[in-house]
Computed example of a mutant assay.
Amino acid sequence: MSAGIPVGLVGVTGYAGMELARILSGHDSMELVRVTSRSDAGKKLSDIYPFLLDMPLGKLEITMPDVEDLAKSCKLVFLAVPHKTAMDIGGRLRDMGVKVVDLSADFRIRDREIYEQWYKVDHTREDLLPEAVYGLPEFYREKVRDAMIVANPGCYPTSAILALHPVLSEGVVETEGIVIDSKSGTSGAGRGAKVGTLFCEVHDSFKAYGLTTHRHTPEIEQELGVAAGESMTVSFNTHLLPIDRGILSTTYTNLKPGVSPQHVRTLFEKAYGNERWVRVFPEGSLPETRWVRGTMFCDIGFVVDQRTGRLIIVSAIDNLCRGASGQAVANANLMLGLDIEKGLEMAPFMP
């Protein structure tokens, strides 16, 4: 069997890097030829991820990040590094003609000033913002195919945008007063050791965090504004669940007068009836995080509260797969001319 398309991964030691290694270990059309980490350079990939022991990918040596070596060796590079770092490495790779899928926030926000307001750093590659494509394939699939830089969406925004896009784009809910109440597993906080995400701090507890200040807010408002055709302001509220992985978002909207539950269902089915990875649940059934664990699925259910006039939408994704690395692979598939589903047909981890 011939080797796959050579790709690289900068930042292999975090949870997103770990998930990318897991997915690419079974991808028959991409070959991971470079993995980098400043802290673990010189080790084999199986040294830090024993699940790759005795697998070909496990023998790959981790190296220091070297943009020129990545450009010579790879057709596409995944960046699983913090914001600010990504714009530098990604910009240089783009300048050398290498395709980039960036899992950070550096190219998601189209307005430089808004990015700098929320992330508190200067954006040094503003020139690339107009060409970077927001990598939510349900809405930007064709643009992703032709892109050199794809801004991989955040995990929370993926769950919120997919839930709201059909009803906002069709104008059946009010654009004011939307509340997005989201809960994430602890892997969403990253792999670095922090007191707030230690087992004893998280286990058997449940807390809110980042209220009114979460950095995914402008990304959500940007894309919902595209759907609605007007500027959007939403109340986005985040919570930490005592689970490893998964996001459940409950979104509260006000239905416009005369909109029936049947019409809402028609809009969701119209939007996602041909989308492999969005599953609209039948009436009386709502999503759970366990049914999407380790997959690309976004499960959506909704309830119309006739008493209050609210449409309540529930969406569930796996924050590491659909919310990060799996979505990155889907975007890379499109950029490299492959079937979008290549390497991503995974059943949920159960129980």
Rank of each mutant, 00 (worst) to 15 (best):
I89M: 10
Q306A: 11
G188T: 10
I243S: 02
A160P: 14
V150R: 03
V259I: 15
E131S: 11
S315W: 08
P157A: 10
V314F: 06
F349R: 13
K143F: 05
E170Q: 15
G326K: 02
S29C: 05
G246K: 09
R290E: 15
N274R: 13
K120D: 01
G284R: 09
L128K: 08
H239Q: 09
A71G: 14
R279M: 02
Y140P: 05
Y140A: 13
M1N: 12
Q306Y: 03
R141P: 00
S285L: 10
T158D: 12
V226Q: 10
P6K: 07
C321I: 14
I178Y: 09
D299V: 07
I312R: 05
I114A: 12
L20E: 13
P56Y: 04
W118E: 03
C200F: 14
A21D: 09
A228G: 09
I178T: 11
S260C: 00
S249E: 10
E19D: 09
I114G: 05
T13S: 05
V172M: 03
P287W: 11
V167D: 03
H27C: 00
T251W: 06
A330W: 07
R34A: 12
R293C: 11
F206E: 07
G309V: 06
V202F: 12
A21C: 15
E113W: 00
Q117D: 14
F51S: 00
E345L: 11
G337I: 09
T238S: 07
V172I: 15
S205E: 06
P56F: 04
V226A: 13
L32K: 04
G190R: 08
L338V: 03
R293M: 13
L255V: 01
N274D: 15
